[in-house]
Each structure stands twice: as structure tokens, then as C-alpha cells.
């Protein structure tokens, strides 16, 4: 039973890592196709990718959209969570439901809805349009994470601050936010990784300036190439670094 467990674990890891290993290994392929046999080791594809203006522009766009849309989603989500956790409002269960609702809807539908709305009111496809969409998908996440993290301990500290005469914005900025630093950071990082990786909204709502997943998508249309492997490996490196940072900074400290 025990041996079987470890065998299953090993097989599962092999399955999970197989595509990533193949991706990374063949990004060093000294040849035109990223498939076996491995012909030799080269860093040419990385050099080529890093010198690619369009790709680098898309990378910057992605970072920009991810950072800004996550910041907006975090602020909106935090304020809403604070309101619903602290003040008794009529219909608060319904309000929570409305705020969470975008989580249960396919990104494709959100994208299509925004596309038809933007078409009708004359907003052209752009990074801004995609960013608006990314706030829509990340707001429920930021709201849910911060809402779940608000406890009685913070409630008392906030009440004390209020009793001592602090205006509400000061309570929020100097008491609530610092006490919720870990969940706020977790919500922000998660939003960044979701936005950074999001394809369909960005694909439908951008045109000339695009984000990285959209640019990678257009690379795929010209067939298999170790250059795509190199981009993919770099993206993997960035995401994994983010996840490990999150793990170390947020979860280690919160324990």
C-alpha cells in the first residue's frame, strides 16, 4: 500500500511535469524544430526572443495591465469587503452574491459582453479595454479573499481608532490595511498572475497593442518553433518566481 502510494505520487509528478520539462529542454534545441532528437545546446532562441521588439512590447503591456488592473481590483474589493464586514446593510447576502458573480461566468462570456458593450458606446479595442475586463475578473477574487480575512480582532482595533477620533479613511489606511497586509498581498499577487496569463479577454479586447499571451498566440500560428519554447520557459520562470515570492513573503509570515 505504501509503495503503491509513492509510485502513484511519482507517476503523478511525471505527468504534471512532462510538458514543462519538454518545453524547457527543447527551448535549448540547436535546430529548427522543438521535437526529438535533441541536436545540441544553444541559447540562440533566447537571444532571438529577447531581441524581438514586438514580444518585449507585449511583455511590458502585460506587466502594465496586470499591475494596474490588479491594483484597481484590490482597492475596490477591499473597500467593498470592509463595508460588508463592518456595516450592517440591507440585502448584504445579495450584494455579496452580485460581487462574487463574475467568478462563475466564463471569461469568454465576459469578454464577449464587454466587446458588444464597447462596440455600442464606441470604445475601441485597446489595453485599457482589456484592463477593464481584467478588473471585472479579479474584483470578486480580491473581495472574497479580503472579506474572508476580516475578523473580530481587526474590528476591535478599528473601533478603538474610531473612538479616538480617527476619520474613516485613516482607520482604513492606518489600521485595517496594515493588519490585513498578508491577505491583501495574496489577493494582489493572485490577481497579477491571473491577469498576466489571461488570454481570451485580452485577445478580443485589444487590437494593435497586445498583451503577452496574445502575442504568443500569434507566434503559435506560424507553427512549432524553439523560439516559442524560449518565451514559454521565460514566462514559466517569471510565474514561478512570483509564486515562490508569494509563498515566502506572505504565507511564511502569516504562520
Amino acid at each position: 500500500m505504501r509503495a503503491l502510494s509513492w509510485a502513484y505520487l511519482a507517476l503523478a509528478y511525471a505527468f504534471v511535469f512532462l510538458p514543462v520539462v519538454v518545453l524547457v529542454v527543447f527551448s535549448f534545441q540547436d535546430g529548427r524544430l522543438p521535437v526529438p532528437p535533441l541536436r545540441g545546446f544553444t541559447l540562440d532562441w533566447y537571444a532571438k526572443v529577447l531581441a524581438d521588439r514586438k514580444l518585449m512590447a507585449a511583455l511590458v503591456n502585460s506587466l502594465l495591465v496586470a499591475a494596474l488592473s490588479s491594483a484597481v481590483a484590490l482597492v475596490l474589493g477591499f473597500l467593498a469587503a470592509h463595508a460588508l464586514a463592518r456595516v450592517r446593510l440591507p440585502g448584504s447576502a445579495l450584494l455579496r452574491g452580485v460581487l462574487i458573480a463574475p467568478m462563475t461566468v466564463s471569461y469568454l462570456i465576459i469578454a464577449l459582453g464587454l466587446l458588444s458593450l464597447f462596440n455600442q458606446i464606441g470604445i475601441r479595442p485597446s489595453l485599457l479595454a482589456a484592463g477593464i475586463g481584467h478588473v471585472v475578473i479579479n474584483l470578486p477574487l480580491c473581495f472574497a479573499i479580503t472579506y474572508a480575512a476580516m475578523g473580530d480582532h481587526q474590528k476591535n482595533a478599528e473601533r478603538a481608532a474610531r473612538d479616538l477620533g480617527a476619520p474613516e479613511w485613516k482607520v482604513l489606511a492606518l489600521v485595517s490595511a496594515p493588519m490585513l497586509a498578508a491577505p491583501l498581498a495574496a489577493a494582489f499577487f493572485l490577481s497579477v498572475t491571473f491577469s498576466w496569463d489571461e488570454f481570451i479577454i485580452a485577445f478580443l479586447l485589444t487590437r494593435f497593442d497586445v498583451t503577452l499571451p496574445v502575442e504568443i498566440w500569434s507566434m503559435l500560428r506560424s507553427g512549432l518553433s524553439p523560439a516559442t519554447n524560449a518565451v514559454g520557459s521565460l514566462v514559466f520562470l517569471v510565474s514561478v518566481t512570483l509564486v515562490i515570492l508569494l509563498e515566502i513573503l506572505v504565507f511564511r509570515r502569516s504562520k
Binding site: 503523478a12 509528478y13 504534471v16 511535469f17 512532462l18 510538458p19 514543462v20 519538454v22 518545453l23 527543447f26 524544430l33 522543438p34 521535437v35 526529438p36 498572475t193 496569463d197 488570454f199 503577452l212 499571451p213 504568443i216 498566440w217 503559435l220 512549432l224 516559442t228 519554447n229 518565451v231 514559454g232 514566462v235 514559466f236 510565474s239 514561478v240 512570483l242 509564486v243 509563498e247
Partner: peptide, 27 residues
């Protein structure tokens, strides 16, 4: 963390990687 690490890689790239693994000349 290890079991779900590839979860955090780009979604588009992940599908592309399976294309390499499963293709006619794939691994």
C-alpha cells in the same frame, strides 16, 4: 506546491507544450 507548479505557467504555453509532447514527432 510542486504538484501544482505548472498550474502557474502560461495557459497558452501549457497547451502548446502538450502539442510538443503528443505530436507526430513528439516525445
Amino acid at each position: 506546491l510542486l504538484a501544482v507548479l505548472p498550474f502557474w505557467t502560461s495557459y497558452v504555453v501549457r497547451s502548446y507544450s502538450w502539442l510538443l509532447v503528443l505530436g507526430q514527432n513528439g516525445v
